[in-house]
Nucleic acid binder design. Structure first.
Length: 294
DNA sequence: GGTAGACCTGGACGC
DNA sequence: GCGTCCAGGTCTACC
């Protein structure tokens, strides 16, 4: 079965795929040239499907490995639109960026969109897995979480969907520590899963909430395990760019870009992008850094 | 509001 | 093989 979805121009699937490290985490996958995005998705009633997304002249095509009802097709169309930001318009930012040599190429490359997970729950869990650890460990924890708790794809049981809040809520801290090796993050993950599964916390509503960014940030930071960096990262995914996700890598980049590699801190990173106002996060994310490796 | 120390894991390194 | 050090954000307690 194949769905066709249109995208607000300019759009490039490979640019979205390569927008950040999420593509290296399950249940995402891509080919060597980042021309195709595949992932395993669990539909609300519990059916697990494999999806293959490719670029078309006006957007993307979504192929599934089984037949779907109209409601299931609508669900997938909605989720893929969200994940790839198909309806996002960056023309206002492109107009500003055209005057900055370090960002001037963005429109030509169709940059701006960042790859998102189907649910904000999944994005929050993965963001928590990026904190206070090395990227290789983030991948390992995410792999283990999906392998241990995610529903497998019937057509290829080795592949799994990201675990639901209900599934994670049914486990315990000891199991999370032992099976997924998430360490002290176990109570954070469990607490979040239980809050979402019980209905006490409606994370999906935050995707479209009519809130000031400061209030949205406050709500995200009320989640245990989500601090300043994690909240800024999640706000980026929610299309709010007023904060820069300052981690050790951001500090290193800014240090080499403007301070000759001398030690700097969070204030220097924020100062460097202050004049971008509501677009700070986007300017930071797609800046053409002179420093590229560690 | 600012700061110190604890929280965990696993890779790197020295012995 | 073993022990030690280190990197990586957030939380809590304390001032």
């Amino acid at each position: 079965m194949k769905l066709i979805l249109s995208a607000y121009p300019p759009f490039s699937l490979s640019t979205v795929i390569q927008s950040h490290g999420w593509i290296q985490l399950p249940a995402f996958n891509t080919d060597g040239e980042a021309k195709e995005l595949t992932f395993v998705y669990r539909l609300t009633p519990g059916k697990v499907v494999g999806l293959r997304i490719q670029e078309t002249d006006s957007g993307v095509s979504v192929e599934t490995d089984c037949q779907l009802s109209q409601a299931e097709q609508d669900d997938i169309a909605c989720k893929v639109t969200w994940m790839l930001g198909l309806d996002q318009d960056y023309s206002a930012f492109y107009a500003l960026a055209s005057n900055e040599p370090k960002l001037a190429y963005m429109q030509e490359r169709a940059q701006g969109r960042v790859l998102r997970c189907p649910t904000l729950f999944e994005d929050v869990i993965k963001t928590i897995l990026t904190t206070n650890t090395l990227w290789a460990h983030t991948i390992r924890m995410a792999d283990a979480l999906v392998l241990e708790y995610g529903d497998s794809l019937p057509a290829d049981p080795a592949r799994h969907a990201f675990p639901t809040a209900e599934c994670l809520a049914a486990t315990d801290e000891e199991s999370l520590r032992a099976k997924a090796r998430v360490g002290y993050r176990a109570p954070y993950i469990l607490g979040l899963a239980r809050a979402v599964a019980s209905g006490d916390l409606d994370l999906e509503a935050l995707k479209t909430a009519d809130l000031y960014t400061t209030e949205l940030r406050k709500q995200l930071m009320a989640i245990k395990g989500v601090g300043g960096y994690a909240a800024a990262n999640l706000l980026m995914l929610l299309g709010r760019y007023a904060y820069v996700p300052v981690d050790s890598w951001a500090i290193k980049l800014v240090s080499h870009e403007w301070y000759n590699g001398e030690p700097v801190g969070q204030p220097e990173v924020e100062k460097a992008f202050e004049h971008w106002g509501e677009w700070k996060g986007l300017a930071f994310w797609f800046w053409d850094w002179s420093y590229h490796n560690g």
